[in-house]
Simulated assay, not measured.
Amino acid sequence: MTTQLIPTGKARRTGVPERRGEPLVRRLVLRAPVYVLLVFAGILALVPFLWMVIASTHRTSDLFVTPLPLLPGGEFWQNLGRLQESIGFGQVMLNSVLVAVIYTAFSVVVSVMCGYGLATYRFRGRGVLLGAILVTMMIPMQVLLVPLFQMMASLGWIDSYQALIVPFLANAFGIFLMRQGFLDFPVTLIEAARIDGASELRTFYRIVIPVARPQIAALIIYTFISQWNSFIWPLLMLNTEANYTIPVALNTMIGLSRVDYSGLMLGSLLATLPLFILFLVFQKQFVAGLLGGAVKG
């Protein structure tokens, strides 16, 4: 009795024994230019950040010599002390964290609830309302500065944190992002919860929110970064140095005749750390949230 070997995979179709390792090598050769390009782009993206780290450890006079310093210096603590003395960096960092956290918390709640309502509820004028929300994204911020300033002045909110938080709680991009994410939400889960007697709020917090965590994480990162980096509006609203946020405080270090570049570099470096930590914490959810509505099963 003879034993017949049954080929598998590619060998079954072609009749040629499969060589292990050859497809992997071929893929690596074909993708090598892409990998090289990505590495080169990554290095270019890191160069400004690396220069900021190096410049923050040198004196300002050392940054204008030839050749430029390529290694960290020994002036980090001196620059940090001068930064704290000139703008009270610890206080402005605390101010920025306070404003960004409060704004992010309330804005995300508003965006999630509005996006959920626009995606799941059927009512007259829903399309018109969505269109009006999207139109607001096309209005430049510079057009809104004067009327918003007059509104804040009439409310007595000048030089207050509520002026930085309240006017922008309804974020059009956040509402649109959550609405797109909720379009793929299985409506059968909501209907089953309603049949079981769950209220709308209970259904929203116990069923909808856990499923939408990736989109919410992406919205948290976007909202926090936008508020953290906001400059023009806080510059108009805040008059007291003790209330300054980081962008406004760093702007005061730019004088007419002298600029403390080392202090600016160090302040900018320390200001990016919360954003870096936030992205590391929500990295997987952020990527999943941005790609959640791109692929439909």
Rank of each mutant, 00 (worst) to 15 (best):
G125Q: 05
L236Q: 11
A163V: 14
E18T: 03
V36I: 15
L145A: 13
L144T: 15
Q78L: 09
L94R: 14
F106N: 01
F168Y: 02
A41P: 00
L177M: 15
G263H: 07
T252Q: 11
I232V: 15
L46G: 08
V92D: 09
P214M: 01
L183P: 00
G289S: 09
F149Y: 14
G115M: 08
M265K: 02
I195L: 14
L280G: 12
V146P: 08
S61E: 14
L30W: 08
G297E: 14
Y244A: 09
G267S: 06
V143A: 15
G292Y: 12
K296N: 04
L238E: 00
V259P: 03
L134Y: 13
V128D: 00
Y222G: 05
P234D: 03
P67S: 12
T188F: 12
R194Y: 14
G297S: 14
Y244H: 14
I54K: 04
N79Q: 09
V108H: 03
E191Q: 08
L219A: 08
S257Q: 13
T2I: 12
A288F: 06
P140G: 09
R202M: 01
A212N: 10
P23Y: 10
M137E: 07
V29R: 14
N239V: 10
G293K: 05
V34P: 01
A193L: 07
R26I: 00
I225E: 04
W157T: 02
E18L: 03
G117R: 02
L144W: 01
V29I: 11
S257M: 06
L236V: 15
